[in-house]
C-alpha cells in the first residue's frame, strides 16, 4: 500500500532501466515528487490512541461514538466511476507533461504489429532534431527497452508480470526513473493487446493505434473500443500489401464509422515508405505541445 496516501495495495510490476545492470522490483511507489492533490478525504474526527496499520482491512474493537450506537446499517449512495482513480492519476501525469511541454503518445496495438520497429526507425531518423525517450510495457523481458537504447534514446521497461496493460500509476513510477527532458517526445509503448489498454488513460496527449496489413481489415470492428479512443491509426507493413488480402479503404471505412475524426498513416517501418508522413505528424504534434501559440 502506498504509505503516503493509502491509495492501494502493492502492485507487482517491475521497472528495468537498461542503463543500469540490475533489475529490481517495486513495491508500488507512485510519484509524490510533483505536487498533486489527494482528493480523497479521510474524515477522521476522532483520535486513535493506539497505533495501527492501514495495510489491511481491520475492525475496530474499541467503541467509537461516530453516530448513534443503535442499528448503524446505512446505505451510502456513491455512483463513482470505477476507473476514476486511474483517471485522477492520469490527469496528474497529463499536468506534469503539460508543465514540462512534453509530447506524450500512448502507442497501442496487438502483438507483432511493429510498434518497436517504428520507434527504432523514428529515433534513428529524428534524434538529431528531437529529444525522445520511451517507456516500454511488456509482460516479461527487457528486450524492447534494450532495442530502444540501442537505437539511441533512453528507455525504461515496465514488466507488468501477469498484467495485460499499463495504467497511470505505472507511468508515474516510470517517470521517477526516466529523466524526461522538457520539450521532448515521450513514447509509451503499451503492452501488445487491443482490448485492455483501451480502458486506461495514462495521461497521454494522443493515442496512436498501430495495425499491420497482415492482421485483417476487420480489426476496427472486432476491437471497437481501441479505435474509438485513438486519434491516429498507423497501418504498418505496407510493403506486404501486394501479397496479402488487406483492404486499406475498408479498414478506414470501418474505423471511421466508429470514430469519424481518426487520422490514418499507411507506412512501412521496414522499407521506410510513408515514414515521412509519420515524422510530419509527430512534428506537428510536438509543435502544438511545445509552442501552442505558433500552430
Amino acid at each position: 500500500m502506498c504509505e503516503t496516501c493509502g491509495c492501494g495495495k502493492p502492485v507487482e510490476f517491475k521497472i528495468y532501466d537498461p542503463s543500469h545492470d540490475h533489475d529490481h522490483s517495486h513495491d508500488h511507489t507512485h510519484n509524490h515528487e510533483y505536487p498533486h492533490d489527494h482528493e480523497h478525504n479521510h474524515d477522521h474526527e476522532h483520535s486513535h490512541d493506539h497505533e495501527h496499520e492501514h495495510d489491511a482491512w481491520h475492525s475496530h474493537e474499541h467503541d467509537h461514538d461516530h453516530y448513534n450506537n443503535q442499528s448503524d446499517k446505512r446505505l451510502i449512495d456513491l455512483n463513482i466511476d470505477i476507473l476514476s482513480e486511474n483517471d485522477r492519476l492520469a490527469q496528474l501525469n497529463r499536468r506534469f507533461f503539460e508543465g514540462r511541454k512534453v509530447l506524450c503518445l500512448n502507442m497501442v496495438s496487438s502483438p507483432g504489429s511493429g510498434k518497436t520497429s517504428i520507434l527504432e526507425k523514428t529515433i534513428a531518423a529524428l534524434k538529431a532534431t528531437h529529444k525522445m525517450s520511451v517507456i516500454e510495457g511488456d509482460q516479461q523481458t527487457p528486450i524492447d527497452a534494450n532495442r530502444i537504447e540501442k537505437a539511441g534514446a533512453p528507455a525504461i521497461q515496465i514488466n507488468t508480470g501477469s498484467g495485460c496493460h499499463l495504467d497511470a500509476r505505472m507511468i508515474d513510477s516510470a517517470l521517477k526513473k526516466l529523466d524526461v527532458d522538457a520539450g521532448s517526445i515521450l513514447f509509451v509503448e503499451n503492452v501488445g493487446n487491443l482490448v485492455c489498454p483501451a480502458m486506461f488513460d495514462l495521461g497521454e496527449f494522443k493515442r496512436v493505434v498501430v495495425i499491420s496489413v497482415t492482421e485483417g481489415d476487420d480489426k476496427p470492428l472486432k476491437y471497437p473500443y481501441m479505435f474509438m479512443s485513438s486519434q491516429l491509426c498507423i497501418i504498418n507493413k505496407s510493403d506486404l500489401l501486394p501479397w496479402v488480402d488487406f483492404n486499406t479503404e475498408e479498414t478506414m471505412k470501418h474505423a471511421h464509422s466508429l470514430n469519424p475524426g481518426l487520422e490514418f498513416i499507411v507506412l512501412s517501418a521496414k522499407t521506410g515508405e510513408g515514414m515521412d508522413l509519420w515524422y510530419d505528424w509527430l512534428a506537428r504534434q510536438a509543435r502544438s505541445v511545445i509552442s501552442p501559440e505558433k500552430v
Binding site: H42, H54, Y67, I82, S84, E85, N86
Partner: peptide, 15 residues
C-alpha cells in the same frame, strides 16, 4: 482490485 480499493476508501470515510 480498483473496486476493493474504492470500497476501502469509502468505508473508511464513512467510519
Amino acid at each position: 482490485v480498483e473496486v476493493i480499493h474504492l470500497a476501502e476508501r469509502e468505508a473508511e470515510k464513512a467510519m
